[in-house]
Computed example of a mutant assay.
Amino acid sequence: MARNLTTIGFDADDTLWQNERFFRLTQERFAALLKDYADGDHLHDRLLAAERRNLGHYGFGIKGFTLSMIETAIEVTDQQVPASVISELIAAGQEMLQHPIELLPHAREAVEEIAASHRVLLITKGDLLDQERKLAQSGLGDLFDGVEIVSAKTRTVYEDIFTRHGNGAAEAMMVGNSLRSDVKPAIEAGGWGVHVPHHLTWEVEHDEPPENAPRYRAIDDLGALASLVNEIG
């Protein structure tokens, strides 16, 4: 019998494991280091602007975030930032790159259950070495039929991945916490997009849900994914 779904793609950060929480903790450390130069809200806005500005140079991930913190520190101090502060920011970035992985609720069970009946892919963006490290530490690596670490998630990227690893986007589903990166472009490619919200989402990933899209779904957590996949067929 023909099936509507043959391939399920999973986002990684803040879908399968914690990520944004560590960025927020580091931002608090950043604000504390520079409290004599600017208040927290101003620093947040300046850092976010630097991150947006630098995405085209550094891409997504901790290394680009660290460089954006350093750039912001130089800007808000009129190039007077102490070397000790720069050193602390570098150390903070290095600590983030070494932080143990914390799986989100139902992550392992969801991937295991789906992998028993469908082709499963990990599709994530960010720094290659860091994403490989997190996948290895997660203990989920052997469950995936393919892993794609990309610089951006767009309609054409999903079309390519689901064609190379499956039967095309029409028989594929993408599951993730970002409406902008995981859900909308997957639907635009012709697949299903499932939003699994995380209580912390980077502002750059904010977007409005595509409520009128027939292939859009939202679930509270990954514990509801297997039933949704079975329902679609």
Results as ranks from 00 to 15, higher is better:
103 L>N: 05
17 W>L: 08
166 G>T: 01
80 Q>M: 08
48 L>S: 06
160 D>N: 10
131 Q>M: 10
98 Q>A: 15
113 E>Y: 06
42 H>E: 15
72 T>F: 12
106 H>I: 09
180 R>M: 10
148 E>G: 01
218 A>L: 03
136 A>G: 07
26 T>F: 02
81 V>N: 01
128 L>A: 10
114 I>A: 15
86 I>G: 03
151 S>I: 08
54 N>H: 12
24 R>V: 15
55 L>E: 14
171 E>M: 01
150 V>A: 04
88 E>Q: 12
55 L>K: 03
167 N>I: 00
70 I>V: 14
53 R>D: 13
91 A>H: 01
176 G>C: 09
156 T>S: 13
104 L>Y: 11
45 D>Y: 08
72 T>Q: 14
21 R>L: 09
194 V>Q: 10
20 E>Q: 11
89 L>M: 06
100 P>H: 03
58 Y>A: 08
181 S>W: 10
189 A>Q: 07
156 T>P: 00
64 G>F: 06
12 A>G: 12
208 E>D: 11
116 A>P: 03
110 A>I: 07
148 E>V: 00
77 T>C: 08
157 V>T: 15
209 P>R: 07
28 E>K: 14
106 H>A: 06
94 Q>K: 11
195 H>A: 05
171 E>T: 13
88 E>H: 13
118 H>E: 04
6 T>W: 03
58 Y>M: 01
38 A>Y: 08
70 I>L: 14
62 I>A: 13
153 K>P: 05
73 A>G: 14
114 I>F: 03
